Lab assay of single mutants.
Amino acid sequence: MIINNLKLIREKKKISQSELAALLESSRQTINGIEKNKYNPSLQLALKIAYYLNTPLEDIFQWQ
C-alpha cells in the first residue's frame, strides 16, 4: 500500500488542488483521489508532482 503526504506538503506550499492539477495537466478530482488514497498515481504523474512541489518523491509517497 502506498501512503502519501501530498495534502500536507501541498498545503504547506500554499498550493490549491486546482492549481496543482493545472500544473500537472490533470484534474482536481485526480489530486483529491490521490490525497485520499483512493487513487495511486502513475510513475509519470508521481514524478511530475514531486517536480512541481520541489520535493523528493520519497517524501511524498511511501510504501507501507
Rank of each mutant, 00 (worst) to 15 (best):
L20F: 05
E58Q: 12
W63H: 03
Q29T: 12
A21N: 02
A46E: 04
L20I: 04
E11R: 09
G33Y: 13
I9W: 08
L57D: 00
S42V: 04
I15W: 05
K14P: 02
S27P: 11
S27K: 09
E11L: 13
Q44W: 10
Q44D: 13
K36Y: 07
L8I: 14
L24S: 09
L23H: 10
T55Q: 05
S26R: 12
L6H: 03
L23K: 11
L43A: 06
D59N: 09
E19K: 13
E35Q: 02
A22I: 12
P41S: 01
N4T: 03
I2V: 13
N40C: 15
Q62S: 08
K48Y: 04
L47E: 11
I3D: 04
K14M: 11
I49V: 05
P41K: 02
I15E: 00
N37V: 02
Q64I: 08
L6V: 04
N37A: 07
I2Y: 10
K13D: 02
Q29Y: 10
I15D: 00
M1Y: 06
E25H: 15
K38E: 14
I34W: 04
L47N: 10
K12H: 10
Y52V: 15
Q44Y: 10
N54D: 14
N37F: 06
Q44E: 15
Y39Q: 11
Y39M: 12
L57V: 10
L53T: 02
N54H: 09
I15V: 11
R28H: 10
D59S: 09
K36E: 15
P56E: 07
N54E: 14
E58Y: 12
K36R: 12
Y52G: 03
I15L: 13
S18D: 14
N37E: 06
L20S: 01
K14H: 11
K38P: 02
P41Y: 03
N5D: 04
L47G: 07
P56K: 10
Q29I: 10
Q29D: 14
R10K: 01
I49W: 02
M1D: 04
A22Y: 11
N4G: 03
Q29R: 14
N40E: 14
A46T: 03
T30R: 10
S16K: 08
Q62L: 08
W63M: 05
E58M: 09
G33T: 07
S18W: 12
K13F: 11
G33R: 15
P56F: 06
A46L: 06
N5T: 02
Y51M: 10
